[in-house]
Amino acid sequence: MASFITHGLFWRVGCILGASGVGLGAYGSHGLRPRVENDEYRIGLWNTAVQYQMINTLALLAAANAGRSLVGCGLLTTGILFFSGSLYIRALEPNKYPNVRRLAPGGGIMLIAGWLALAL
Score class of each variant (00 low, 15 high):
L87T: 00
V13F: 10
G28M: 06
T77G: 09
A64G: 01
A104T: 08
G74I: 01
V22W: 08
A113K: 09
A59R: 02
E37W: 02
S84E: 09
I55M: 14
R42N: 06
P105C: 09
E93S: 15
G31C: 07
Y41D: 09
A26V: 02
T48Q: 11
A63G: 01
I16E: 10
G23M: 10
M110E: 07
S20H: 01
S29A: 08
M54L: 15
L103H: 03
R42M: 11
S20E: 07
D39R: 00
P98F: 13
R33M: 08
W115L: 14
R33P: 03
L103F: 13
N65H: 15
A104L: 05
V22N: 07
N56C: 15
E40K: 07
A64N: 04
V13T: 10
L76V: 07
G67T: 01
I43P: 00
Y88D: 03
A117V: 05
L17A: 11
M110S: 10
G31H: 05
L32F: 07
H7I: 04
P105L: 12
L118R: 03
I43D: 05
G85V: 00
R68D: 12
L103K: 04
V22C: 10
G106L: 11
T77R: 06
G21C: 03
N65I: 09
K96D: 15
V22L: 14
A63M: 06
G79T: 08
P98M: 13
Q53L: 11
L58P: 02
C73D: 02
A59P: 04
F83V: 09
N95P: 11
T48M: 08
Y27L: 12
G107T: 01
L75S: 04
G79V: 12
M110Q: 08
D39A: 07
E40W: 09
G114L: 10
E40A: 11
F4H: 09
G28F: 09
A91R: 03
I43G: 10
A104C: 05
D39V: 03
C15D: 10
Y52L: 05
H7L: 05
I16V: 12
I16D: 06
L45C: 05
G74P: 01
G85K: 03
T6W: 04
I112V: 12
G108Y: 03
W46K: 04
A26R: 04
F4C: 06
E93P: 03
G44K: 13
I80R: 00
S86T: 02
H30V: 07
A19V: 08
W115H: 08
A119E: 11
A91F: 05
